[in-house]
Design a protein around this nucleic acid. Structure first.
Lengths: 345, 345
DNA sequence: CTGAAAGCGCTTACAG
DNA sequence: CTGAAAGCGCTTACAG
């Protein structure tokens, strides 16, 4: 910056003012400074400005990994929103226990970013406390957090409506397949289960623990076994509701391998509206991942700008049922039992 | 840090030395400082250290978007490697022309990161020059760049072997479907075309421009039309080689919609080995995306540590043919013409 | 093994 | 509208 000042024949103060776009610079000076900056390909050293302003110009995102559709899509929504607001994007993808311990131990985000967005990250109470102690703006994404601004989808409502759709098609035995991976989407998971159960209750259908299946890891392999166990029940399900589309895809593959026609013998439903859901004709509940990301950035900005905790808002975005070819009435309808509450959503 | 020093009853110099793990600190002092740091939940202000060391402790990644499998997977490979090396990850996802202009105009990575990884980003000569002027370590990922360390896969060889696989199955009319989106994978695209053509030449098969189809955008929709055009040729292809798996998936969907059996009537092959390729039984060429990411980080570290340009290495990783159910011999084999070079790879 | 002091490149009152 | 000076929180020779 000193170079620019010298070349433009002004002080560094003036260069600083010009480059930050302050109005208190005369037009001629501004022009000279800008020219000099351009000629020297000047780029500001943010560390220096950070040091004095206390702002880093960075927003950090903490997430369990980068490989699920939802996380990528949410991040894709954040990136342009952050850029527009002049923030850089710092990504902390914290997968295993060691990385996790390291993150919470070193708290690299502490003075390294102006806000931290926590995405689909099931925190232990200790971890949560540690973050709260950070004294920096926190936004929770795809999960509800007490006393902190959060953006998420109404998972319970989505699962409720998805299950209802299956009930409306005539299904009475509906299995729910959840991931047993606790690190990531625990919050959504719990709520989707609640919505599912509520739909059953509303319809006067019996809850059956055997129909609620926990399959290991979101990229694990136990899917074939799970399908086997479900379909060998005395009264097997005619519909399978997978907690996420990623999961539903693997389910579809397992069913195809087992030569079980979809939706001929079983209907399959997912949750997310992954790009591939359209390609594969999977009925699912769309959640607006990119918009969630954008909204999270908006919240972060308002918390950054207004240090008063006035922004402890919780924004709940809607899901939308997208019916496609993977759901249909069950094979042999049987005499329909009366339903208490089965309006088409 | 002054607080810590006071609490530990030492100078800030000593705190600094302790926290950086320098050996020139006595054990008792070290213990006192560490205790004080812990009690105060001290986290270092990186801006300050950056300012004096000139190191930011950050590595920036420039990529065209975040939504392709390859980019997510590569990033997933980078994240732990960077963390292990003590670097934070700064992501510049630069999609449209405006963001792009902005990035190259402001060069936010300039003094904001210790290295820049350019991933699958088709640069204009001016952009490339701008980056070279940056005077910071640059690593090119999934593309070859003259005079700069690069990691990529041998795309030409992969396409060659993929095409050969189809030829070996008896296909003589093999279409190549490429994306016409120039912003992203232009480099790989060009080389895959070259490999495809070489396989045809090697086998003594005629090149036919009608079989090389450019479909708009990697998430566009013109797939149905492209399929229509191909299958209405006088001598239609019996195999379709899609430039990426993402593309192949859409192709499969279009074919299913058109009721064209795969591989019964046409074989389909992709490139990437996307997670879903296994699920859908797509034959493809696997590229080690995560390893590419890790290797890129390794290169970046060696360039950062050793400012001499001694590390202009180009690391070429292999692809691997993964045969699955989507490729098979063509429907009516006809009398096999003799092949010059058709060993099974 | 430890401390005092200079300085990294900015921003920000404070004068003028 | 512009400049001189202090200071942000560290690291790093330099002494001791």
């Amino acid at each position: 910056m000193a170079d620019v000042a010298q070349r433009a024949g002004v002080s560094v103060s003036t260069v600083s003012r010009t480059l930050r776009g302050l109005p208190t610079v005369s037009d001629t000076t501004r022009a000279r400074v800008e020219a000099a900056a351009r000629e020297l390909s000047f780029a500001i050293t943010r560390s220096a400005s950070s040091l004095v302003t206390g702002r880093t110009g960075r927003v950090a995102v903490l997430l369990p990994h980068l490989e699920s559709w939802f996380l990528s899509a949410a991040l894709s929504g954040m990136a342009p929103a952050l850029r527009e607001a002049g923030f850089d994007l710092l990504v902390y993808s914290v997968a295993d226990v060691r990385e996790r311990a390291d993150f919470f131990d070193r708290l690299p985000a502490r003075r390294n970013a102006d806000a931290l967005l926590v995405v689909s990250f099931a925190l232990t109470p200790a971890e949560r406390a540690r973050l709260d102690d950070l004294g920096m703006p926190l936004v929770f994404v795809s999960q509800h957090a007490q006393g902190r601004p959060s953006v998420y989808v109404d998972d319970a409502d989505g699962a409720l409506r998805g299950t209802r759709h299956l009930i409306n098609l005539g299904h009475r035995r509906i299995a729910l397949l959840q991931t047993s991976d606790e690190t990531g989407f625990a919050w959504s998971s719990k709520n989707r289960l609640a919505g599912y159960l509520r739909a059953l209750d509303d319809a006067g259908l019996e809850r059956d623990d055997e129909l609620i299946m926990s399959v290991r890891g979101w990229k694990g392999s136990g899917m074939g076994a799970a399908v086997g166990r479900l379909l060998s029940l005395q009264d097997p399900p005619t519909a399978l509701f997978a907690e996420t589309d990623d999961f539903a895809f693997r389910l579809l593959a397992a069913l195809r391998e087992a030569n079980i026609p979809v939706p001929g013998r079983v209907s399959v439903m997912g949750f997310d509206d992954h790009v591939m859901a359209g390609v594969l004709g999977l009925t699912t509940l769309a959640q607006p991942a990119a918009e969630i990301g954008r909204t999270a950035v908006r919240l972060a900005r308002s918390v950054i700008d207004d240090a008063d905790g006035a922004h402890r808002r919780h924004i709940v975005l809607p899901t939308e049922l997208v019916p496609r070819g993977s759901t249909a009435p069950p094979p042999s309808p049987g005499p329909a039992r009366p339903l208490r509450d089965a309006k088409l959503t």
